[in-house]
Amino acid sequence: MSLPRSRQPRRLGTAFARTIPAVISLALLIAVWELYARFGGIAPTVLPAPSRVLQQAWENRAALAENTLPTIRATLAGFACSLVAAFVLSALVDFAPRLRRALFPILIASQTLPLVAIAPLVVLWFGFGLLPKILLVALVTFFPMMVALVEGYAATQKEIAEMLAAMGAGRWRIFRSARLPSALPYFFAGLRVSITYAVVGAIFAEYAGAAKGLGIYMLSAKNNFRPDLVLAAVTISSALTLMLFGLAVLIQHLAMPWERAGREDGQKSSTEGGR
């Protein structure tokens, strides 16, 4: 059996090729927007053209950067707290199933809270500092990871757990050696979902009240009739989310090399069968 190491560059190439349709459709969308904004007789205070957004973003780059940093800080701090909480609580729930019945109704209820209403309250209770942002980011990102982990533990192959027990492994050992690794694919699925909420959560929190941040920047830009600057901030927040998503995919890729081994094998046999 030859280990298919040499395929790495070509696979990267195909991944690149796969993004081409997305790039084309995005470019088309921007082009139509640009033309409509320029020749549609619409005031730039209502719908600015993409070129204007870009140009104004560049002119206001210092202010934008100054407001982007706190948002990144809140997002990362909130997400880190959420991640730790998801791991700790999911492990606790795994060891004490009764705790699951006690906790899950509360956690599910927490996901039904309308963020628009809850964000100002959290700011009211915890002030304009970092804490309410951390809490709100954690609130919106925690649940998908928690559910994914709990379901992932339960997906552990029964034979593996039984075999470990027959080897003399205790509960902690079985958790560490079998349940946790079994949950990894589920966890990363949950991570990819919740990371896309993280930046939005931070911006919501800032929108409700903050000294600096993309959220408060958007709010004041809107109040000053500057939709171009709102859209500039929106673009930055989208870029942040996409970067975090890419980071999550990269970490998954590095954390689960065996997944790649299985898939590469499958690809190899299918491509060779096709020739």
Partner: peptide, 17 residues
């Protein structure tokens, strides 16, 4: 229990990771 026997289960129970 457990210390006397080495157990081979029905499916191979190899850990993919």
């Amino acid at each position: 229990h457990g210390s006397r026997f080495a157990f081979m289960p029905q499916r191979d129970a190899l850990m993919p990771w």
